[in-house]
Simulated scan of single mutants.
Amino acid sequence: MRILTDIRDFFFPRLCMACGKKLLVSEQVLCCDCLSQLPFTHLGNTPGNEMEKIFWGRFPIVRASSLLWYSRGGKVAHILAGMKYYGRRQVCRHMGEVLALELQSSGFFAGVDYLLPVPLHPDRLRTRGYNQSLLLAEGISRVTGIPVCDGVLRRVRNNQTQTHKSAWERQENASHLFQLAGDTRVLERKHVMLVDDVLTTGATLTSCAEVLSEIKEIHLSIVTLAWTR
């Protein structure tokens, strides 16, 4: 198997998503140097942390956390670009595993019944071929064993990109984006964790939560791979 791996890496070298350097056989997605230099938030499962406070007054939230700080042009930006625009599905799942391994020991996932990825609009899903938030949730599920619940939330408007928009414009852009779909009784009285790739102002996640709050006695938490503070 090692010979086959060496042959594959010779003809199809695996490159670090953050710096582009060739990966060693023992490395996945990121080289050890980049992995050690990632800007971790260290929010963990701290009650009332900075990210959680973003959603106070918008909807009742159990807990919220994010793994990495995002900055334009940085290592995390390269990872997210690979996840969203370059078809790197294995990167999405792997980063979900990294996120889960980092947060699991803090008890962040304790009591969570379902992981619910933020859906893409069908047009964007057809263009991209996959939903990076769904794959991220699948990676988290691999580590935690929490099932992924996909399909109860539908994106009904293909909003414009949030890039270069002000906080007010982002909020307006994200209004009335979602609606419930199918049988939502499975989420009644359940603790559901919304999963997304990056948090900016929280407008999109708030739009999701407003719709999900129609479900009887649902409890909501949020986790993202990265956060633009």
Rank of each mutant, 00 (worst) to 15 (best):
L80H: 01
L80Y: 08
L80R: 10
L80P: 00
A81I: 05
G82P: 05
G82F: 04
G82Q: 05
G82T: 07
G82C: 07
M83C: 01
K84P: 11
K84R: 11
Y85E: 14
Y85G: 04
Y85M: 04
Y86M: 05
Y86T: 12
Y86A: 03
G87Y: 08
G87W: 09
G87T: 12
G87V: 03
G87Q: 12
G87H: 12
R88N: 06
R88C: 02
R88Q: 14
R89T: 14
R89A: 02
R89P: 06
Q90G: 09
Q90H: 14
Q90E: 14
V91F: 07
V91M: 04
V91D: 11
C92D: 05
C92R: 11
C92H: 11
R93D: 01
R93W: 03
R93N: 02
H94K: 13
H94I: 00
H94R: 09
M95N: 07
M95I: 03
M95E: 09
M95C: 04
M95R: 12
G96F: 02
G96L: 01
G96E: 05
E97C: 08
E97K: 15
E97L: 03
V98R: 06
V98Q: 10
V98K: 00
V98A: 09
L99F: 12
L99G: 05
L99T: 14
L99Q: 10
L99H: 13
L99N: 09
L99I: 01
L99K: 10
L99P: 06
A100S: 11
A100L: 03
A100T: 11
L101I: 05
L101Y: 15
L101T: 14
L101F: 08
E102G: 00
E102S: 09
E102T: 10
E102W: 03
E102F: 09
E102R: 13
E102P: 01
L103I: 02
L103K: 06
Q104D: 07
Q104Y: 05
S105K: 15
S105P: 01
S106C: 11
S106L: 07
G107D: 13
G107R: 13
F108S: 08
F108L: 07
F109V: 07
F109I: 05
F109R: 12
F109C: 10
F109N: 10
F109E: 11
F109P: 04
A110T: 15
A110S: 14
A110F: 02
G111D: 15
G111W: 15
G111T: 13
G111N: 14
G111A: 10
G111F: 14
